[in-house]
Amino acid sequence: MTSRSFEQLAMPHFERLYNFACWLTHDRQEAEDLVQETYAKALKGFSSFQPGTNFRAWIYKILRNAFLTSRTGLKAAATVPLEPEDEEQVVPAVMETPESILLQRSDWQLVQKAVEQLPVAYREVLLLCEVEEMSYQEISATLGIPMGTVMSRLSRARKTLRDGFATAAAASKGVN
C-alpha cells in the first residue's frame, strides 16, 4: 500500500475528523495539532491497516487515542462519571413539550452548548452516532468498548440532553 492510496483513503475524512477533533478538544489550535498527529501516525502505521476492513473506524480510533494521551484528553477522561453503564435501564421519555418547542425554534447555539457540556465519554459516542452516522458496531470498534456500553452511553447522553433542554425551556418560559 502506497502513500498515494493512503491519501485517497484518508483525505475524504479530513473535514469530519477536524470537526470531531474540535468537539473533543474545544480548541481549534489543539484540534489542528490532533488532526495533524493523527494523519502522521496513520501514515506511519498504514502498513498495519488490513485492506477491506473499516478504514474510517481505524483512523478515528487513532485520533481518539491521540486525544486521550493529550493533556486535554487525560483531563477530560479523568472527569468521566463512574456510574454503571451496561446495567442501566433505558429510561423512557416522558411526554413533555418544552424541549420540542425549543428544538422547533432551531436554537442551534443551545444544542451546541448542551453537547459541549456533556462528559467526553458521552459526547464522543453521541457525535459518532448522530453526526458521523456510524453504526453501533462501528462505534464499538472505534472506541474499543462493547456494543452494550455504546447503547447505554448513547441513552445517557440523550437523556442528559433532554433534561438540559427541558430545564432551558422552563427557564426561557420563566424569563418570557
Binding site: Y18, W23, E32, W108, L127, E130, V131
Partner: peptide, 10 residues
C-alpha cells in the same frame, strides 16, 4: 444534533 454537530470547518 446533526445540524449543530457539523459546526467546525478546517
Amino acid at each position: 444534533i446533526q445540524t449543530a454537530g457539523k459546526h467546525f470547518t478546517p
